[in-house]
Design a binder for these strands. Sequence first.
RNA 1: GGGUCCGUGGCGCAGCACGGAUAGCGUGUCAGCCUUCUAAGCUGAAAGUCCUGGGUUCAAAUCCCAGCGGACCCGCCA
Length: 650
Amino acid sequence: MQVPSVNPFAEFRHECEAVLADAVARALPEVKVDTFPLGKPSNPSFGQLASSLCFELAKQLKQKPNDLTALVVKAIDTSRFTLIEKVESTGGYINFRVNFSKFSSLTLESIKQLGAEYGFPKTETPLKIIVEHTSVNPLHPIHIGQARNPILGDSLARILKFRGHDVSRHYYIDDVGRQSSVIAYGYAKLGKPKPDEKIDHFIGKIYTITSCIVELNRLKRQLEVAKSVSANEEVAKLNKEISEWTAIAGELEEKHPKLFAALLAKIGEDANPEEEINKLNRAYEDGEPNAKKLIRDVSDLCLEGFRQTAKRVEIFYDSWDWESDFVWSSQVSDVLQKLKSTPFVFSEGGVLEFDADKVIQTLGLKAKLGLREGQEVPPLTLVRADGTTLYTTRDVAYTLWKFNQAEKVVNVIGMEQSLAQLQLKIALYALGYAKQAESFVHFAYNLVTLPGYKMSSRRGHYITFDEVLDEAIKRAYEEVSKRSPLLTEEEKQKIASFVGIGAVRYALVDVDTGKPVVFTWDRVLNFETNSAPYVQYTHARACSILRKAAKTPEKPECKFLAEQLEHELVLALASFPDMFIEAAEYLKPNMIADYSNALADKFNTFYNALPVIKADSTELCDARLALTDAIRTVLSNALNLIGVVAPEKM
RNA sequence: GGGUCCGUGGCGCAGCACGGAUAGCGUGUCAGCCUUCUAAGCUGAAAGUCCUGGGUUCAAAUCCCAGCGGACCCGCCA
């Protein structure tokens, strides 16, 4: 046993494993057991760890589990006990009790010595990992439907970093799509105006209005053609679409009359705006200098807005990767050449297709990719008839570039792109990059939706992330003013800021990534139990006690921590490292939020039930102060993993 | 039609990867607790066919199969 220990509970577990293995070997020499799994019993009266080993052995040996546990427990060598207090058998289980006096000292002493480093056992195989996240197209502000991405991505990056990996956070800028040309076209038509608001919000308006006007223009021209050839069904369909877009145009005109009028007039100068946009798009892909400057400038402006938003929630990026760079350099065409030389690419009507299913068959990847027997993966179009590439094709080049500088790639991308991400992975296999394919992770998450309507950036139907943050801070301010009226104005504002932002981060990281989040203000801006403010408040409360006590006991005697509540707290603190390892290995950031809430819960119960400063004896007071200090440290360490501020006062 | 994910008290969720002892938590409802360390807190009560049906197992919310319900995907969009 080492002091300090990065993982006190693991020390106990290892001791139990060794003691159990030894006892089984002596009590039942005829059986061979490889692993001795230990689980946490549902009820603390059964001890801190339990083994159900004898249920399995019972069948093998044709004996009752109870008889076997009795034999094993009898053979246990108590002289090996360090952290174990007692081993007993109940109902077929072998239950291990920890010696709390020693275990509490080990845990509290470790936390005290390691401080901000406590709870983060380093991986034995540190990797260079690229976490790609956010990657919102620079066309409009980040909206709440997209905000779950940076929150999850940033939390993952923090967790992996603390696990000992070399993590780099990348933002992939998709500037090659047609949409980038739409916004650039509208912005240029307006004469590159100076914004009178946050730049990405301004860009977003221009994009939505331009896109709407161009779409209507296109539909109307199509309608003329359809009418001239009397394609009645087509006419009806177009009329329907036109009326939908006309309604959107009406909304936009009402909301932004000046901007709308200006764009309508300017775009009206072009006979065929759609063709202008396509021209711009082609020129950009070809790297024509004017197109390059225009689109890069507009994108840069929008990205500046994103950087400001990200900064508000303490999110930063190590690398901004432009998709266009991969097109202009030969990286995309090189990958295409390589793909073409494999037997998995075929041409159909001038279009290049990638036969993902054939790769699976040929290389026998079915099991590796977790696919079912009869499951087929549809082909992926690599190149259009006009010779231009598609998004996923370019993403293959980008992914290979990432693997040039990292051993593992984690893509934080919505689950709606699961198929494309799978095809990308298969393409890596097809190109002979099996090792990379295996280290390629699509971290999928479900969408954030608004009750009532579908969010659509093209239609301008969205709540921006900035608005959510503003509202969160506003509500937090009201809350602080109500609860702590004596604070100075400056303090209130500071608290409102980290409480509001913490609440949003917590709410978006808390739910299992497989489940959709329906956005409601009440849900996201929760200041009660199971929220960042609750955990933050608990942390501040612990700090307050330590401040008031005005002493840090040198040598607290942990044997005085004899209450059940105190034992549970020590166990929770000691289990933090195990939880962290699991969250890091299985990429489950929501575990961190759950843990911090559970620890806060236990501490608040303790706080209400047992006095710290006014404890019955100085020894007890010292021990409880040490416990409180350890809780403060662990809450802070946990919150840090999900990017939430742990305040000393609120 | 095919695929992926999800289904747990009224509502919102955890637990499921690795099966184990009375299924946790929050909210809402009801009843209480601030001359005492921060009430953004705490205590107690009522509230559950863990979607349904099979199967595997000494043991299933957890694994397998089928079905039902919901979201998303199956584009020469990104």
